[in-house]
Design a protein around this nucleic acid. Structure first.
Lengths: 199, 199
DNA sequence: AATGAAAGGATTAAGCC
DNA sequence: GGCTTAATCCTTTCATT
């Protein structure tokens, strides 16, 4: 299987800014034919770089309530975390859930009114939360930019391009790419180190 | 201008899960013709509910580095905040920037290596940051779900449906919809109250 | 908002390098 | 293996009611 190249990155950038852009237009921009673009997009979906074609929606217009950032200390029993995260993601008010390495949750949501506490216990259950703190948000923005410097599947350890010799491994729920098994084990060590340092 | 109705919400949900879905398919699902769907999508874009058609990308596969959540205390001079935010959004490593009501920034990014401090000063400048803290992330998720209970443009104050009599107003960078001027001023008071309580 | 016609894109298949 | 061209099929748009 061929590596990712700069053309793939260009296609991604163009689709990020308008996912309904005609493939023929993309083809002109990157110097390929429309079927070639179509093939590459299919491949980008297959290897999981494109998760889905979706909308960027201004939820502030659809949903009342104040935008807040909630930091959640999930109660001790480990098994609770995934189910709490699920409940949150299924709640209409929730936009993002970040899981920290210490197994806390950081939630961005629009809560129905000022009573965040009762909304929270309604959503995830009373016993699931040890502690939480709330910060009022004035704005939420995301970057449609990919950056440009790193356009290949790069090894999470050494930064080299990952080719067909590479391996992939899921650590704490996230998929990382490695150019070789040695980088993979080194990264795992580093991650563990960093994680302990953060505690 | 006609109100938003449940059909608009269905269209949004369908496009959220696949933004390249043919309008004819959406038309079947909601019981309209394809041109009618096209018209509604155009309108949703015009009133700013749809910001853009885009991709949901698994950036962990494209970009090396550890995913982190950085809380930034931006240096005192007020004018610095927008420019710091801009610099961050333009950096390839940054995925989200949340602005709190207290004018702190919460940044989700994949930093090149463990040295977050130097990455940060390279990106936004040394003098822009007073203090920052870093949390290692194990996962980042977002919700493509709109929730379902509130499908109309709802008044940010009272929750009623906003019709052509409504007003809109931008507070701290976010656009809120109101059903009447009285709700608008009440909301502004409430917001100010909440904001002071959070400090 | 539906219909039907015209224009424009996407996808398939065959062939080239 | 990946690309291109050409043909077909499908989608979108526009004018009309």
């Amino acid at each position: 299987m061929r590596d990712l190249d700069e053309t793939d990155l260009e296609i991604l950038q163009l689709l990020l800014s308008n996912a309904r852009r005609p493939y023929s237009e993309i083809a002109d921009a990157v110097g390929l034919s429309a079927p070639a673009v179509s093939d590459r997009v299919t491949r980008l979906q297959e290897i999981g770089i494109i998760d889905r074609f979706t909308l960027d929606i201004d939820r502030s217009q659809l949903r009342k309530g104040l935008p807040v950032l909630i930091t959640l200390d999930v109660a001790a029993h480990e098994s609770a975390l995934p189910s709490v995260r699920e409940s949150l993601l299924e709640a209409g008010a929730v936009e993002h859930v970040f899981t920290t390495a210490e197994a806390d949750l950081v939630v961005v949501a629009r809560v129905p009114d000022n009573d965040v506490a009762s909304w929270l216990t309604d959503t995830v259950g009373r016993e699931a939360v040890d502690e939480f703190s709330v910060t009022l948000l004035a704005g939420t923005e995301w970057s449609p930019d990919l950056g440009g410097t790193e356009f290949a599947l790069s090894c999470a350890q050494c930064g080299n391009t990952v080719d067909s010799e590479g391996t992939a491994s899921r650590i704490d729920g996230t998929l990382y790419q490695f150019c070789c098994p040695s980088c993979e084990s080194r990264f795992a060590e580093k991650y563990e180190q960093f994680r302990q340092g953060a505690e």
